[in-house]
Amino acid sequence: MNIFRLIGDLSHLASIFILLHKIQTTRSCRGISFKTQALYVTVFATRYLDLIFGEFVSVYNVIMKLFFLGSSCYILYLMKMKYKPTNDPSIDTFRLEYLLGPCTVLALIFNFSFTPVEILWSFSIFLEAVAILPQLFMLQRTGEAEAITTHYLAALGAYRALYIPNWIYRYYTEGSWDPIAVLAGLVQTGLYLDFFYIYVTKVLQGQKFELPA
């Protein structure tokens, strides 16, 4: 564990609490892509199979994984059941097959061994990299977002961005790197760059999050 990864994980944790807070206080999941949230459940479910099949890493690791699994399922419940009327599928139109297809192919080609658990692990890494796209696509379509939703996205983006210095640090201290995670992580962070730019230049200056026409 190093400081970058710790702050990254805490940022990931914060993003989920911000999202839950937004849904509970506004009693609405307006502006949140159900597809992106469903992809995160898929990501966690396929990757955290290692809780069963992998080696024990640490109590921290197990608790965090259980939290991410549980909270992402709970968010789906809120969106599909409790606050269903506030969820508008007509603007959540990104085609999931464009993400699931390529990620499946990539996972079959790039994995640490051709076993179900390892292929699913690779799949989860690739899928995580692009899981935010339905959400960003929705933002693009509506052209604006509530401030709280942008804080959620910023915290989520910061999480993966912080994993980059973590990998650099680990490369120098441990002398090795994980090409699958690092390359997918770079792509994932890259997808946020546009968002980060508007977040920093507008939302953090107290303005509304609006995309240029």
């Binding site: 080696e55 965090m64 990998w167 680990r170 441990e174 002398g175 790197w177 994980d178 995670a181």
Partner: peptide, 10 residues
């Protein structure tokens, strides 16, 4: 050198 680093990451 590469390794399966991320197995202990989240």
């Amino acid at each position: 050198q590469t390794t399966e680093h991320s197995k202990d990451e989240l």
